[in-house]
Design a binder for these strands. Structure first.
Length: 115
DNA sequence: CAGATGACAAGAT
DNA sequence: AATCTTGCCATCT
């Protein structure tokens, strides 16, 4: 299990119409205080994957503009809007769309339910 | 092998 | 309150 795989798994858990910050994803992936690794992981994600990378945003509630993906940052915004996310000044209300992960995940014991 | 970079976050000024 | 500086780990050159 590579470090990135864990991050991918977390992103896949993000429900429709909700978003998560890098710090949140990093925390759930076991990378406390290391959001950079999360960003790097998503950088390796291919459009072929089923990973809702567009649901991952920075702590400012805004989309990090980078020419790393098809099109541009506008694409991510469009995809989020398609999920019902309303943008406020190119930003979204984290207070309303921030994904609340289940406690089971926070314990870090999600993959193994035995023992 | 060592140095620099990176889709960020949190603390300090 | 906004902006700057530091820290963090993995990957790239």
């Amino acid at each position: 299990m590579s470090t990135y795989d864990k991050i991918y798994d977390i992103v896949r858990q993000i429900p429709y119409g909700q978003v998560a910050t890098y710090g949140q994803v990093a925390e759930l992936a076991g990378l406390f205080g290391k959001p950079r690794v999360v960003g790097y992981a998503l950088y390796h994600v291919a459009p072929d994957d089923d990973i809702p990378w567009h649901r991952v945003i920075n702590a400012k509630g805004e989309i990090s503009q980078s020419a790393f993906r098809d099109g541009s940052d506008d694409l991510q915004r469009v995809m989020l809007e398609a999920e019902g996310v309303v943008f406020e000044q190119n930003k979204i209300s984290l207070a309303r769309y921030r994904w609340q992960p289940p406690p089971e995940m926070i314990t870090g014991d999600d993959t193994k339910t035995d023992k």
